[in-house]
Design a protein around this nucleic acid. Structure first.
Ligand SMILES: [Mn+2]
Ligand SMILES: [Mn+2]
Ligand SMILES: [Zn+2]
Ligand SMILES: [Zn+2]
Lengths: 163, 163
DNA sequence: TTGATACTGAGACTCAGTCTCAATACGAAC
DNA sequence: GTTCGTATTGAGACTGAGTCTCAGTATCAA
């Protein structure tokens, strides 16, 4: 079950950091989320649970866990960073729907291989990368989905709580 | 020579927008820059030239030219967006040195092709993408280049005015 | 000219993220 | 378990890139 939280603890302890209660609460939210979470999402979820954690602590913790390699951080250009668990799952990159905000994950080993090739070409030591493709998911289609009225409320599909 | 500025004018006019003097000044800076420029860079260059343009206008213009497809916008996670000319040159992606801030451009048609393949796989209509690889350039090497003292002023190579 | 419209500049404003610092929790050592 | 030094937290002030507002100005057509 929650072996994941132990991995988190280990990663912290390896750097002389402790898994305190606030940190555990934040970590659990991200670990169990089925979508990419922003700091504000975590903040509000914890508030609703009756286990509030200070804003600064949430930000600090997310940053810290990214540094420890247990979370991945992404910026889809929406003005806030989002996080997802990184431990216990394979690397992937993202498609981002500019119509509804849906995030689709993909893996393409061939691209990863070519990236290595590119970095070698420039004698570059790659540490991490960010590969995002922006466009319209199958439900949003190539153009504004609604007819004429430029009302453009982003459509809400079931799995579209992403950002 | 500056056929480029005519292309800019055309792209604007195609959308019923005018190439005013402030817009031309901003455009010329980006068109002639040999590096990626942030809004503040443009602002200050124009100020120094004795042809100041208001901050809001610079931001508006950069955004506008991105929308028109004449500039490309990138966010390398340094808290400010940077721009470069897009017209009259082929698409490329970037390596970003987290040691010195150098930006290396690369093209890899095979990756572009595989991206198309990925988007088809998900019935996704790609509009644009962002592919960045972060790490250390050949001059910065795999670790902090300086010895023990964690003074860590980012090293300054000649072409490192990038950001 | 006149009027309609696009654009600019100055500065107020926003808001995600950071910083400060006093209060608190914790872990190690008595 | 008491004591002490250090790590952490919470509350709120602060930062700064980018946006918004709006009155004044330029541009164009009739
Ligand atoms: Mn993901
Ligand atoms: Mn470039
Ligand atoms: Zn990848
Ligand atoms: Zn590309």
């Amino acid at each position: 079950m929650d072996r994941a939280i132990d991995k988190v603890r280990d990663a912290l302890q390896a750097r002389g950091l402790r898994l305190t209660k606030p940190r555990r609460l934040v970590a659990e939210k991200v670990l169990s989320a089925r979508r990419h979470l922003a700091a504000d999402d975590v903040l509000e979820m914890l508030r609703r649970d009756g286990t509030p954690v200070a804003r600064a602590t949430v930000y600090r913790t997310l940053e810290m866990m990214k540094e420890c390699g247990t979370f991945d951080e992404h910026d889809f250009g929406r003005g806030r960073k989002v996080y997802e668990r990184a431990i216990g799952r394979p690397h992937h990159d993202h498609l981002y729907c500019i119509g509804c905000g849906a995030i689709i994950e993909f893996q393409e080993p061939e691209i990863e291989r070519l990236q290595d090739q590119v970095t070698r070409r420039y004698h570059f030591i790659a540490m991490y990368h960010s590969h995002k493709i922006f466009g319209y998911c199958r439900r949003c289609g190539p153009k504004a989905p609604s007819g004429d009225k430029a009302h453009d409320e982003p459509p809400r599909h079931q799995d579209t709580k992403n950002d």
